[in-house]
Design a protein around this nucleic acid. Structure first.
Lengths: 154, 154
DNA sequence: TTCCTTTATTAATCTACATTAATGCACAAC
DNA sequence: GTTGTGCATTAATGTAGATTAATAAAGGAA
């Protein structure tokens, strides 16, 4: 199968462009994110080895997310309409993960979301800078820094 | 097919209990929601006619959401493992909707989320009380009231 | 190594939204 | 009719997290 090398910092997909592919991560670590009207990045997900990363849009609509590499990575492109992506068990699991994230965004404080993140994804938490964790949690790096300090004080 | 009548206010599913079914809404309007440790409700979704509502968990795990009827409704129960629920196109669409909600929760203000909601779901917005819209948006009814007033002032 | 850019931390100030509480209103029960 | 009971609104106050700005530390490029 075809492989693509993606160097750290290199952009694999841009919002507003068409992209009929998603990517299976063979090695490395990537992220997908949106950029809002104020130019701020909001990380939607991280994808380490063996994860799948891409845009959920129908394949003739432009992407909504950027994807780039956090570490030097190797990915395998997969056509959006490939039967490989029709595994309904995996899709149902994915829906559940997103549901939990929504409920937590609505009901948990920043520190609770942080603790939940490092517990659920310890492997990822060690490999990405704090500011990206903050972006994933929906807060600023400054707020994450403060919130961690206050937790230790207790 | 079997039908269930659900009267306004009646609970169809409780969090922490097993439920191997999801529900196709034939008429009426239902909602699913979680209750956090402070006893606050957070509405995850509304389901009017022809929508599907249920929990995304694997079928042997207890539910995470409550489901009840906002209007007198009629629903058709469907087994979780039914092939009817394996339509990967629909699942992909669902993933996209949830993705957009996450991105908006992270990047948009309460008033922006409100305007987006009434634009995207005008039919639902007219049928549910404000406090439920607030709960769906992740804010308090008081904040929604204030935010709407400030918008009109301009 | 030096230089430069990115990242993390801290503090001061600001703001969106939460909390609390009071008031008025609609609608259903009696 | 009267009496709730729940809902929407308003206002006063509180607070989590944003913003701004400064400093320091860490990593990359030359």
């Amino acid at each position: 199968m075809k492989r693509i090398e993606v160097k750290k910092g290199q952009i694999l997909q841009r919002a507003d462009y068409l992209n009929k592919k998603v990517y299976q991560v063979e090695s490395g670590l990537l992220r997908s994110y949106s950029i809002d009207e104020n130019g701020k990045e909001h990380i939607f997900m991280f994808a380490p080895e063996n994860w799948l990363i891409g845009d959920g849009v129908p394949k003739d609509e432009p992407c909504q997310l950027f994807i780039d590499a956090i570490e030097d990575s190797v990915v395998i492109p997969i056509e959006r309409d490939s039967p490989l992506l029709s595994d309904s068990k995996k899709l149902i699991r994915r829906v559940e993960v997103l549901k939990n994230r929504i409920i937590k965004l609505m009901s948990a404080s920043a520190i609770e979301r942080y603790e939940d993140f490092i517990e659920t994804y310890p492997n990822i938490a060690q490999r990405v800078p704090q500011k990206m964790i903050a972006s994933y949690l929906g807060i600023t790096p400054e707020a994450l820094s403060t919130v961690k300090r206050n937790r230790l004080k207790k």
